[in-house]
Amino acid sequence: MSALAENYQGAVAGGGHAQQLTEEPEHGPSKRIVVAYGFWIFLISDIILFAALFASYAVLTDATAGGPRGRDLFELPIVAFETACLLLSTVFCGIAGIGAQARRKGMYYGAMAATFVLGATFVAIELHEFATMIEAGAGPSRSAFLSAFFALIGCHGLHVSAGLLWLLTMMAQVYAKGFRADIQRRLLCFALFWHTLDIIWVALFSLVYLVGVAPR
């Protein structure tokens, strides 16, 4: 609470200009904290988007129209492997952030490359899973349950794919511009994005796949 009040007073003392607030670390939070806060607000809106898709999935789980149910389709070993990929990639992403803050180029590039490989493996497995399901006649047009499933898991897969593009961009930016302060802030936003995708995956593998196959 106290930090909120201080920020507010800082904004008032700075003539009400938020810009002034962010450029004077002595009177308010550093620009890094303000940028991370703004991006965090975006990520929360993204979480709400996933909550809406998840709510429609939860409502439609039993609307299978006589088609296959979750426990006929989901293969837990594959899901476990996907989970491991994403969890390890999120840890490597954190290590890349440490490497950037310590200005260790080898550590940064190595960890970012590991993050990319693990993330790309995740997307590849998910695409293979989707292809297998569609081939078996369980595509998104089979039932309301499958439509909701493909929308929810596919939206997460799209986010991870976009994150992979962003990851490559960040590697190129550090290569071209070095560890400048503005690049560091972009890296921080990327790390927040990547960690949030893993949090969303925790909800998905627990409540979609594991609850889907659990005996009831």
């Binding site: 962010t22 550093s30 620009k31 890094r32 440490i98 803050q101 310590a102 200005r103 302060a181 560091q184």
Partner: peptide, 22 residues
Amino acid sequence: HGDVAPGDEIDPAEIPQAIGGY
């Protein structure tokens, strides 16, 4: 860049500690 606040950079000696958290 005047916007580098303390805590933005990590001393190389603190790397193992930071990785330990992860």
